[in-house]
Computed example of a mutant assay.
Amino acid sequence: MKNTLTASLLLSAALLLAPFSSAWACATCACGDPTLMSMGTEQPFEGRLRLSSTLRGWGHTVGQDGVNAMRLREARMDVAAAYAPLPWLFLSATLPLQAREIRDVSLSRERGWGVGELELTAKAFLFRDRAFSAKHLFSVLGGVKLPTAPVLRGADGEMLNLDAQIGSGSVDPLAGVAYQHFRGDWSFLVSTTGFLPTRGIMGFRAGASIRTTLAAQFQPATRWALRMAFDSRLEAPADINGEREENGGGFIGYASPDVLFSPGMDVVVAAGVRVPFINQLRGRVSSTPIAMLSVAYDL
Rank of each mutant, 00 (worst) to 15 (best):
K2A: 06
T4V: 15
T4R: 01
T6N: 14
S12Q: 06
A27V: 04
C31G: 08
G32R: 14
D33L: 07
P34V: 14
S38V: 09
G40M: 13
Q43E: 15
E46A: 10
S52T: 03
H60T: 06
V62L: 03
V67H: 12
R71A: 01
R76H: 12
M77C: 02
Y83T: 02
P85S: 07
E101C: 01
I102R: 00
E110G: 05
E110H: 06
R111N: 00
G114M: 02
L120N: 05
A124I: 08
D129W: 00
R130Y: 15
S133F: 04
F138W: 00
S139N: 02
S139P: 06
L146C: 11
D156E: 03
D156M: 00
D163Q: 12
D172Y: 05
P173T: 10
G176L: 14
V177T: 06
V177Y: 02
F182W: 10
F195T: 08
L196D: 14
R199S: 09
I201M: 02
F204R: 01
A216P: 08
F218I: 14
F218L: 08
P220D: 04
T222E: 15
T222G: 12
T222Q: 15
A229W: 03
F230S: 10
D231E: 13
A236W: 11
A238K: 13
E243C: 02
N247M: 04
P257S: 10
L260D: 09
L260S: 13
L260V: 15
R274M: 06
R274E: 09
P276T: 02
N279W: 03
N279D: 09
Q280M: 04
L281M: 03
R284P: 13
V285F: 01
S287H: 02
L293S: 12
D298L: 05
